[in-house]
Design a protein around this nucleic acid. Structure first.
Length: 655
DNA sequence: CCGTTTTGTCATCCC
DNA sequence: TCGGGATGACAAAAC
């Protein structure tokens, strides 16, 4: 790594809630009819609104309003548009929420189509309308369609990344939502296609795109420097002892402090539905208007950070939000991955996460291309600490066992924090990490990582980062050969990507990139070793768990053994007492009752002898001093004798 | 310097 | 047959 000279860092403050504030303010203005500059007439009803808002949401209004000649125009909508269909759309334009019922969904759909709410159309109706109109089988149909559509879109984006027309942030939103919705809906349908509860008429559903919108804006706002916390907070954090969920702000996205349900969704909190519908979709519920807390999107980074409002959620909450950092989470993810369509979130349609992937690979080399100054680092860390007060503490705390399991921090890599995300267990299960940066170049306008970037960046890969620093200090390290190999093969993508992506994505990437045999061999080698490394960690963790479990069992068995021994001793003592009592009793009886002396004397001899405990405990059935017949005779004689001579209590005690 | 622990890697087996 | 995960064994680094 070479240091070209002093570098001036530019820090950017990016608010993740600004756009939402603007939208909310616009809605308030509309309700107060302030600054409204257009009147929309629908079926003799008038709606005051802001032309800019309408134009930005609807192609129809865009055409009508941008070509207007006079101020404060009145737009009379044709008969095709009804109040029933238009009013929810208007509200959606101002709130990003669409309230609908089974009755009016078709009407809304029709109006949306007419007015050119195309993105909403994609996001919502392709999924919803078949749901409402069709039966259980429709979901599959829709799913299939969406899947092919998504893959079609993806293939398009892959084949011609440069052909993509630049999308506005708003344009992206519904597509994102569409993706997630389809995926989410497919999951339960897939598991129990027959059990989908019917959607009742009286339910008012609400499609909430606000959180996603906020998410999208957070990533796409600004001057093109899309940000994603994974690449920003991670590599700059100084300690390897850190659970990603405690650190990574991305994992706290869209957490609503008031709504615990929000945090349980692995796929994201996109869709808000109620009751049966919610169960069917297995998604989150939004019953409250979005608050600022909904926009807990933040990424702190050197040179860039996002504003975060509302109370910070605890690390625990973070982990709940995106179950990535524990074995249990891993299991959860496994189960999630079992639902094929959920995986489409990232693989078949990377719209949502492309930005992440893009920035991951795109920004990292930039940011790391030159050595950071201490001041820069301090600023970045200070910012991070400012937003995550407990960050500093977590930095110094050793990882819990669970986290250790998932970490593969042995390389001292700058991406150690990323590895805490359980990439090994299910790298493709978390949509935020799936195919990490696999499509980076597609969305970044075809910007491929240059050779300079690759070579200069210490953050390009675990291997690169560590070895560079080590070689700087040590001069000669064993892994220099690997580092050299990385540079020799000159990969057109970051090395860390190799192990984090799914096999399918990996193969696709190999297809895309025309790698030389050396590169191919190296890449496969890296992937194999990386996978094996993580497998070894899991294996060791399991072994440790097994040891702990066995130790616990041993402890338990020992205490049981102690208890049994105590019982045994107690029984022994009581048996001894009984024996002595009986012995004395028999002795005295044998002297008093001469006619039965023979039997009694034998009995006395028997009780005074060292017979086994078991025999003593069941003297009536056991004595083997004589044959079975004699035993029976002795027993009956003893019964009679005891009934005649012994006090009642003694008889009972003996038996 | 030596023993122990941790971690990565390889070989092999199994699914 | 191939790929991937699990695991024992080994070596090197770290402590």
């Amino acid at each position: 790594m070479s240091v070209d000279g002093p570098r001036t860092s530019v820090f950017t403050f990016q608010s993740a809630v600004h756009s939402h504030h603007v939208l909310r303010s616009l809605e308030e203005l509309r309700q107060k009819e302030l600054l409204c500059d257009v009147t929309v007439e629908v079926e003799r009803r008038s709606f005051r609104a802001h032309s800019s808002v309408l134009a930005s949401c609807s192609d129809y209004f865009y055409t009508r309003l941008t070509n207007r000649s006079r101020p404060n125009p009145t737009v009379r909508l044709p008969d095709e548009v009804t109040v029933e269909g238009f009013e929810p759309l208007l509200q959606f334009a101002y709130t990003a929420k669409l309230h609908f019922t089974k009755e009016n969904i078709l009407e809304i759909h029709r109006c949306a189509e007419f007015l050119g709410f195309q993105n909403l159309d994609k996001a919502c109706f392709e999924f919803l309308v078949p749901k409402f109109s069709g039966g259980g089988g429709t979901s599959k149909k829709v799913k299939g369609k969406s899947k092919s559509q998504a893959s079609h879109e993806k293939s398009q984006s892959i084949c011609s990344p440069d052909d993509q027309t630049p999308e506005t942030g708003e344009d992206r939103v519904p597509q994102d939502a569409s993706t997630v919705m389809q995926a989410a809906s497919a999951t339960p349908s897939e598991e129990s296609p027959e059990e989908c509860p019917p959607i009742t008429n009286d339910k008012v559903m609400q499609l909430d795109l606000s959180t996603l919108y906020a998410r999208s804006t957070a990533y796409h706002m600004g001057d093109g420097q899309d940000q994603f916390c994974l690449q920003n907070c991670g590599p700059q954090l100084p300690s390897s002892s850190m659970a990603a969920a405690e650190v990574c702000p991305f994992l706290s996205i869209s957490s609503t402090g008031d709504n615990e349900k929000l945090r349980s969704s692995a796929a994201g909190d996109i869709l808000a539905m109620e009751d049966d519908f919610q169960k069917e979709l297995a998604m989150d519920v939004h019953c409250e208007p979005p608050t600022d807390k909904d926009l807990n999107i933040a990424s702190i980074t050197e040179g860039h950070f996002d504003q975060r409002e509302g109370p910070l959620i605890s690390p625990t909450d973070c982990s709940q939000l995106c179950p990535l950092n524990s074995a249990q989470s891993s299991g959860d993810l496994d189960s999630i991955s079992g639902a094929p369509d959920l995986s489409n979130i990232g693989t078949d349609d990377n719209q949502v996460f492309d930005s992440n992937e893009q920035t991951f690979s795109e920004l990292t080399p930039k940011d790391c291309s030159t050595e950071r100054s201490t001041v820069e680092r301090e600023v970045a860390e200070h910012l991070a600490k400012g937003f995550w007060p407990d960050l500093s503490s977590t930095l110094n705390e050793p990882l819990p066992l669970d986290s250790i399991d998932q970490s593969s921090a042995g390389n001292g890599s700058d991406f150690h924090w990323l590895k805490h995300l359980d990439l090994g267990a299910a790298p493709d299960d978390c949509p935020f990490l799936r195919d990490l940066s696999s499509n980076d170049r597609q969305t970044s306008g075809g910007d491929t990582l240059s050779k300079e970037d690759t070579e200069d960046s210490p953050c390009m890969s675990p291997i690169n980062s560590r070895e560079t620093s080590e070689c700087e200090s040590d001069g000669d390290c064993a892994q220099c050969s690997s580092s050299e190999q990385v540079q020799e093969v000159d990969l057109p993508f970051p090395v860390e990507q190799i192990s984090s992506m799914t096999r399918r994505a990996f193969l696709q990437m190999l297809k895309r990139e025309q790698l030389t045999p050396e590169q191919l061999e190296f890449v496969q080698d890296v992937r194999r070793r990386s996978k094996n490394r993580m497998a070894a960690q899991r294996c060791r963790k399991r072994k440790l768990d097994c040891i702990y479990r066995l130790e616990g069992e041993i402890k338990k068995l020992r205490s049981e053994k102690e208890k049994l021994l105590q019982d045994h001793n107690q029984l022994k003592l009581s048996i001894e007492d009984v024996r002595q009592n009986l012995s004395g009793l028999c002795q005295s009886l044998s002297t008093d009752a001469a006619p039965q002396s023979e039997q009694l004397q034998a009995l006395a001899r028997y009780f005074s002898s060292d017979c086994p405990t078991s025999v003593l405990l069941t003297p009536m059935a056991s004595p083997s001093l004589a044959g079975p017949d004699q035993d029976a005779h002795a027993n009956s004689s003893l019964d009679t004798f005891l009934a005649d001579t012994c006090p009642e209590g003694d008889t009972v005690a003996l038996r």
